[in-house]
Each structure stands twice: as structure tokens, then as C-alpha cells.
């Protein structure tokens, strides 16, 4: 397949995943903002998003500023609006590598956000966040049920998984202090919300319940998001799947393996041989920073191996 096609597929699903993650992130902020003295929460949203980090330190920035930057800003390449626009532009550029079902999920209503009034957007925020999540879900569904399982499918999935791993890690990085054992003193109302906010931002609240039977502990939450291989937004799940996909790609490509294969395999080994106690002891923050770096390197090595631009 054309290298450009691989690049477009990889980034198309990355953008969709980013739009989805950003919607959940804003949702978390919105929920936390309903609590008393929770203003700092919007700042951590800004920081976790990566694309609004400057607003996190700007004391004059309001919650609306942050929401608009992440939802509608035409200048912010990572805003939900831009993510969908870029995903569609990519799709259009490789239209013949997509199925009709996939194209239609991206082409349908794609201009809605372009004309959305800022005030209306903020006022009807839950509607638009749901809308974004539904678009993303429809796109994934269309891929899953209509796309041939060839190298194109693998590149598509890789983009999504790399983005997801990075988002989960970035979110943890912003909130890791919340999970540090020192803060585990009383588990009062505020802590409870802080912890659950991390789960909410990854749509993991219910799933966590199922696995841990209700008790929110920092250990449990960190373990769930980093190490639980069953939860599809955990770092462990993302990396295991990336590793599998890369192996499939290698077998499609005459067994040829590259640097990206080594990075993914090393990360899987590291996560497999790790328990949450050691992770906290050796420093959760350091681990997360490391993992984010590895994820970025992985992304550029995938591009290098298959001759496209990262």
C-alpha cells in the first residue's frame, strides 16, 4: 500500500481517538466544576489535553476559554472540531482505501461544529460532547465491521492505540499526585471525587466497579489504568494490542521487524513484569514520563519503518 495511505489511516484514527478522549476530558472537568472549590480542575483538564497547556497557568483563563479551546478552536489542531475536520480531510485524500460505511460516518454532519456558536456550544456542552463521542463510536464501528483485515486496518488500529495509550498516560501524569499514597489519608468526599474523576475521564467508572467491587483506592485506580489488561484504555491493553498488531504486520511483510517492534515488545515486558506496589515505590511519575516518551518514539518509529511522515 502507498506510504501516504498508511500515514493518512494512522492519523485519521488518531484524530478520531483524540476527539473522543478530549470530549471525555471536558466531561470530567464539567463534572468536577460542579463541586465547591473545584476551580483547579479546569486547569488540570487544560494541562492533560496538551493543546491548552498555556491556559492552565493563565489565571485569567475561564472555564469557557478552556472549553472553547478544546471544543471549537479552529486554530487548535487538537480541538474536537479540528480533529474531525482533519480526519475527514485524511479520509477524503484516501477515499478509495476506505469503505463507504467509514466514509459516511466521517462525511455525515462534518460541518456542524464549524458553524456552532461559541455560546451555544458552551451552553449545550453535554449534547456536543455526546455528539463527538457518538461520531467516534460510529467511525470505530464502521471500521470494525466493514474494513478488510489487511495492513491498512492495522495502521488504522495502531494510530488509535498509540493515541489512546498516550492520552491515558498523560491524564495519569496530570493527576498522579492525587493518587500518591500520601494523600490517602481520610478518603473524604473531595478525594473521592478526585479519584473518580480520573476514572470518569477514561470512561472507566463502571468497569472499575466490576473489577474492584466498589472501593476506590489510589492503588486500585492506578493499577486499573496502567496494568489491567482487560480494560481497553489501560496502558497495558494498548501496548499488548499494539504489540500484536505490529507482529501481524511483520508477518504480512515477510517477517520484517523494525525498531518499533522492539519498543512495543519491551514495553509489554515491562508492564507484564510489574506490580502496582513496585510502580509506586519506584515512582509512578517517573514511570509515566518514561512511558509517554516511549510512546512518542514508538509513533515515529512506526512511521520510519513504513516510509511515511510521523
Amino acid at each position: 500500500m502507498l506510504s501516504r495511505t498508511a500515514q493518512m489511516l494512522f492519523w485519521m484514527s488518531r484524530y478520531i481517538e483524540r476527539a473522543d478522549a478530549t470530549a471525555r476530558l471536558i466531561e470530567m472537568g464539567r463534572r468536577m466544576a460542579m463541586l465547591p472549590t473545584a476551580n483547579a480542575e479546569w486547569r488540570s483538564v487544560a494541562r492533560a489535553s496538551g493543546s491548552a497547556a498555556d491556559l492552565a497557568d493563565d489565571t485569567k483563563a475561564t472555564s469557557s476559554d478552556i472549553i472553547l479551546r478544546l471544543l471549537l478552536d479552529a486554530e487548535n489542531q487538537s480541538s474536537i472540531r479540528c480533529c474531525f475536520a482533519q480526519a475527514r480531510a485524511n479520509a477524503k485524500a484516501i477515499r478509495s482505501s476506505l469503505t463507504t460505511a467509514m466514509w459516511e460516518t466521517l462525511n455525515d454532519q462534518w460541518r456542524l461544529l464549524e458553524t456552532l456558536d461559541a455560546e451555544v456550544g458552551v451552553g449545550e456542552l453535554p449534547i456536543w460532547l455526546d455528539w463527538a463521542k457518538q461520531r467516534a463510536a460510529a467511525f470505530r464501528g464502521a471500521c470494525e465491521t466493514s474494513l478488510l483485515r489487511n495492513d491498512g486496518y492495522i495502521f488504522l488500529r495502531l494510530g488509535e492505540l498509540v493515541e489512546r495509550a498516550e492520552m491515558t498516560l498523560r491524564l495519569l501524569d496530570v493527576k498522579y499526585y492525587v493518587l500518591l499514597p500520601e494523600t490517602d489519608v481520610v478518603g473524604g468526599g473531595r478525594d473521592y471525587h478526585q479519584w473518580t474523576s480520573v476514572l470518569r475521564a477514561t470512561s472507566a467508572l463502571r468497569a472499575y466497579h466490576h473489577v474492584y467491587r466498589g472501593d476506590y483506592t489510589p492503588w486500585g485506580i492506578a493499577e486499573f489504568l496502567v496494568l489491567n489488561p482487560m480494560f481497553p484504555r489501560s496502558a497495558a491493553y494498548c501496548y499488548r494490542t499494539i504489540d500484536q498488531r505490529l507482529n501481524e504486520l511483520a508477518s504480512l511483510y515477510d517477517g520484517t521487524r523494525f525498531e518499533c517492534h522492539d519498543i512495543a515488545a519491551a514495553m509489554v515486558r515491562r508492564l507484564d513484569g510489574c506490580d502496582i506496589q513496585t510502580l509506586f515505590q519506584s515512582g509512578l511519575h517517573e514511570f509515566i514520563e518514561d512511558a509517554i516518551q516511549a510512546t512518542n518514539r514508538l509513533s515515529s518509529e512506526i512511521a520510519r519503518a513504513y516510509h511515511f511522515e510521523s
Binding site: 502507498l2 501516504r4 495502521f155
Partner: peptide
């Protein structure tokens, strides 16, 4: 394949497209 000019190049008198392989 639907290619754009940047997907093609000429080397030793032959025309090639850049692919993932």
C-alpha cells in the same frame, strides 16, 4: 492505487511509488 505526484519518483530510469514495503 490513487497516487499524487509526491507518491511517485523516478530512479534509474524507472518509475516507482512509495509504499509501506
Amino acid at each position: 492505487e490513487l497516487v499524487e505526484p509526491s507518491d511517485l519518483f523516478v530512479d534509474e530510469g524507472k518509475v516507482w511509488m512509495r509504499t509501506t514495503r
